[in-house]
Design a protein around this nucleic acid. Structure first.
Lengths: 206, 206
DNA sequence: TTTTGTTGATTGACCGTTCAATAAAAAATT
DNA sequence: AATTTTTTATTGAACGGTCAATCAACAAAA
């Protein structure tokens, strides 16, 4: 079997096996022995391709994060100069994409969140992601709301998305994606209606 | 120094030391050696009073959970038959009580959330808490909203609270309690206004 | 003297890493 | 085409280190 060009194949295998191992046993018990066994390779391979367990975990988080980024970008790319509501819906949909709502990925996210509090490289990745979500939301709200209201709307929606997501991960019955999306849509609608009323009132005064 | 009646004292000491150790090093590195050192006792004490490390961690979670329950209950006790909005605000305030928004407690919560996915006793505790929050919120919304709307409002508010809380735990600048509370209040207000409009419209039809 | 509380060295288990050995494909040589 | 040589990929036993749990010994109050 040994051939050239194994690196990308093995890396993908091992990242997938890591997600499965975390789903199965949790980050604390996702030992390299368990991960290697799931991937059908020996333990030595991990250090060979990722320079140690930490490298594999970081790569796994990068992978999940990259999927999330793509899920959002793909949906927004088709929109162009669409109204803010469409973009906000796209961001919401991206965050509840299938690639982000599987049990193993949600468990992995939660584990990484917890460990990012004490592990600098993971912390960096997580914060980049947090700020990206907030910044994207803030930007769209800003198109129809004053600065402060836009910020608060973005903060609220970001928290709502993460919260729905967190509760879905923890709940026995799992995450009801459609219901979660609808609750997020409702939040957007209310925020945008506020903007509409403001403009209406402004016109009344005119 | 040894005297009778040490048990409650040591238990409190060790639970406090556990919170500090998790804040300092994370759950993964909160070893019994580290916890014992922080509490100023030997490692053997932990097994003596908690029958092992797991017992201590479970007791620590119970302690934090109990603080949260009390924070909510105290605020609601004074309200009696006050309107739903007052109770909802009390629940929100309780969830953002000082006992729940310190760095060490927020970190501990996050760590317990992650490990509750694979540790049955912690999972039980966490679910009881989740359902209690949802149930309390749902109950109050039900006083002015139809069943389905009340449920959705409760689900949304619960997610918003947890999300604000989670983002506060992860954010560099920590949790801005006042701002978080305000965002939650706004959500409540909007939900209750919806109820008001419905009633108004219902009257129009009459 | 008895009871209650405490210590900390010891033990056994497990984990991540390393690295010499091996296997198989690719390249070079005959 | 058959072979040797080189390169790339992989293995897994061995090692050093860490951790939770145990328990015989000890200390101080009752």
């Amino acid at each position: 079997m040994p051939k050239v060009g194994m690196q990308p194949i093995r890396r993908r295998q091992l990242i997938q096996a890591t997600l499965e191992a975390i789903d199965e046993a949790g980050l604390a018990d996702a030992t390299i022995a368990r991960i290697a066994k799931r991937a059908g390779v020996s333990t030595g391979i991990i250090s060979h391709y990722f320079a140690g367990k930490d490298g594999l975990l970081e790569a796994t988080m990068r992978h999940v994060l990259s999927d999330l980024g793509n899920a959002v970008l793909e949906r927004r790319a088709a929109l162009g100069e669409a109204p803010p509501e469409a973009h906000l819906h796209a961001i919401i949909d991206g965050n509840f994409d299938r690639s982000q709502t599987s049990r193993s990925v949600m468990k992995t996210w939660l584990a990484f969140w917890a460990s990012s509090m004490h592990h600098r490289p993971l912390q960096r990745l997580q914060r980049v992601n947090d700020r990206r979500l907030y910044s994207n939301l803030s930007c769209q709200f800003r198109r129809v709301l004053p600065k402060q209201e836009a910020r608060d709307a973005a903060r609220g929606l970001a928290a709502l998305i993460d919260g729905l997501w967190l509760r879905g991960a923890l709940a026995q019955e799992g995450l009801n994606v459609d219901r979660a999306r609808q609750l997020a849509y409702d939040y957007v609608r209310v925020q945008l209606e506020t903007a509409h009323y403001s403009r209406t009132r402004a016109n009344d005064y005119a």
